[in-house]
Write a protein that binds this DNA or RNA. Structure first.
Lengths: 337, 337
DNA sequence: CTGTTAGCGCATTCAC
DNA sequence: GTGAATGCGCTAACAG
């Protein structure tokens, strides 16, 4: 059990074969007989041997690792959920996951300036980024397969939901409950970090327009952060023709709106209907109706696609679109006059 | 810009030096003159060169990566917050972060059986695990420095809070507000995943005992999951001598209790005071009073310690204990009869 | 301070 | 099916 230090050579000696055979056997190559495979596996087990992936990478050119670039902290629910899905997809293929995070403008410049990921991953998954053209070019220039999550770049591999359509679904639901017209709450884009926000706003505007609302019926409320429901409530209460329903761009913002609203002694859904977006952990806890997106599944699909591209295969479908669904709970109800 | 393919050799040629010098210059070795360093850096920049870490690892024996083992999904707030801290600490040192996750018993056996991490990281950080003796032995056997987060193992490097003391602080606060005696809500340990839960329960019992409560004053309420506040509320309302305050082992559970409680038309803090543990993102949103633990800082300190151990240095302090603090918001108040 | 030399541990030719 | 030989790109002695 000198574990950490034993090499393939030792395993080969113990199994009575050559290192080449050990290498092949451990990677389950069809070029090795079953009998030999068993011997090698047994020897490796006894010596508690594990392949030193760095050496393997140097010899093969593949590092056995997929990198992911996330915007914002890992503790943000969306990022965590995507990482869970990526991990699911990668573990089965015995690949590792390297995380790169960009939270500030400085981070962002540092990342795109040096691209530390290059040569050190077999593929890169980029989530929810509102990339500039320069940044996108920079990424493509590193000669590494790229998969976008919740961001469509024409012709490039991506796994997304249709943010605009999902928002339209939510708005249509509110309108069908009699709410004319729902407002839409959004976090002020700081550094243009989230790509999805744009699509959702577009969806809101498009659906209202399609249903015959006029320009003045469009009410976009702005928060300074996902926890700034208070500003949204203030804006709501300051409107001449107060909306009876509001859709938020995320559950987090929706929950914050709920907290601010009820703290004033106002009720939900009686005085205001609230519809979220995401279906994160606490949405169910608080009975929040929401448009659910399959974030972990986005991650799984992205992992699968990244693995295919890393292996040089062409994925069957380059632009995967996953369905969302409306989850009805207790924060929405028909309008009562 | 053949970027992804240029090697040190090319940089050396362009800078007019040897590859050894390039290697040293890029790692900012003091053995290289400033003038040479500049030349090399310029050449590397022009060729858009990046070191192939796998080759570097093979030659040096260090892989430039710290691994972390988390229990439960990445999207759990605690895990995300720790990962953020680890990332902070590692990025500055140009190290990467590899994530290993264990969510089920099968995962757990697979991980400890094969220890995929061995030889592929310079140190391992283990968070919040209630490890068996076997598992701990298995970890030590891989000859890799280990750092425990929120888990103290005598003599081994760790970064933690004092869970028992933190809970006692919270309970004492409630008692000083006149609540005799507060109950404690906890999630049923499934596979013995979280280490902290044990310490918190101990702290609750110890503080009540220390303040003169009798055995029947100790009320431990059990939930089937962090989102099962409903069970806790049911147990509360079924008690003969209903407590006027409850402390939960986590904010998530506390928030769920709040949701279930207010849904019944009961009020907080009037009819029940609720105290959480963590100070996660949504605690502030909902005005939850809580015992705040510096999770991201735990991650930073763990990263620093892991880097030191990986470099063969002995950290100044092997068992770091970080302070918690009480955050008073709107879910706790003095008892009014 | 800089260059030369010799591997690091594995995957992959090519023989057999 | 298996073994022997070669080299992946870099770092670490050792000279100078």
């Amino acid at each position: 059990m000198s574990s950490a230090r034993s090499r393939m050579e030792d395993v080969a000696a113990r199994a009575g074969v050559s290192v080449a055979t050990v290498s092949r056997a451990l990677r389950d190559s069809p070029l090795v007989s079953d009998a030999t495979k068993q011997k090698v596996l047994a020897a490796a087990e006894e010596l508690d041997f594990a392949v030193f992936r760095a050496a393997s990478a140097l010899a093969s050119g593949r590092v056995g690792r997929i990198a992911v670039l996330i915007s914002g902290p890992v503790r943000a629910w969306f990022n965590g959920a995507v990482l869970d899905g990526l991990y699911d997809g990668l573990r089965a293929a015995e690949h590792e996951l390297s995380v790169y995070r960009v939270t500030s403008l400085a981070d962002r410049e540092a990342f795109f300036g040096t691209l530390p990921v290059r040569r050190n991953a077999d593929a890169l998954v980029v989530t929810s980024f509102a990339l500039t053209t320069d940044e996108r070019d920079r990424l493509s220039s590193i000669g590494m397969p790229l998969v976008y999550v919740n961001q469509q770049v024409e012709g490039l591999p991506s796994v997304s939901i249709d943010d605009a359509a999902a928002t339209r679904l939510g708005i249509r639901y509110l309108v069908n409950l009699g709410h004319r017209w729902p407002a839409f709450a959004q976090v002020d884009a700081r550094i243009g970090f989230t790509y999805s926000a744009l699509g959702r706003l577009d969806g809101y505007r498009a659906e209202l327009a399609g249903l015959g609302a006029t320009a003045s019926d469009v009410r976009v409320l702005r928060a300074r952060g996902a926890d700034d429901g208070e500003s949204v409530v203030a804006q709501l209460l300051g409107l001449a023709d107060r909306p009876s329903a509001v859709m938020a761009e995320s559950d987090e913002l929706a929950l914050s709106i709920m907290a601010a609203w009820t703290r004033l002694g106002l009720r939900i859904p009686d005085d205001l209907c609230v519809l979220g977006f995401d279906d994160q952990t606490l949405a169910e806890t608080f009975g929040l109706s929401t448009v659910a997106q399959p974030v972990t599944e986005l991650g799984r699909r992205a992992a699968a696609m990244a693995l295919q591209l890393a292996a040089g295969e062409e994925p069957a479908q380059r632009e995967v679109l996953l369905p969302v669904r409306l989850v009805l709970r207790r924060t929405t109800a028909a309008l009562r006059r």
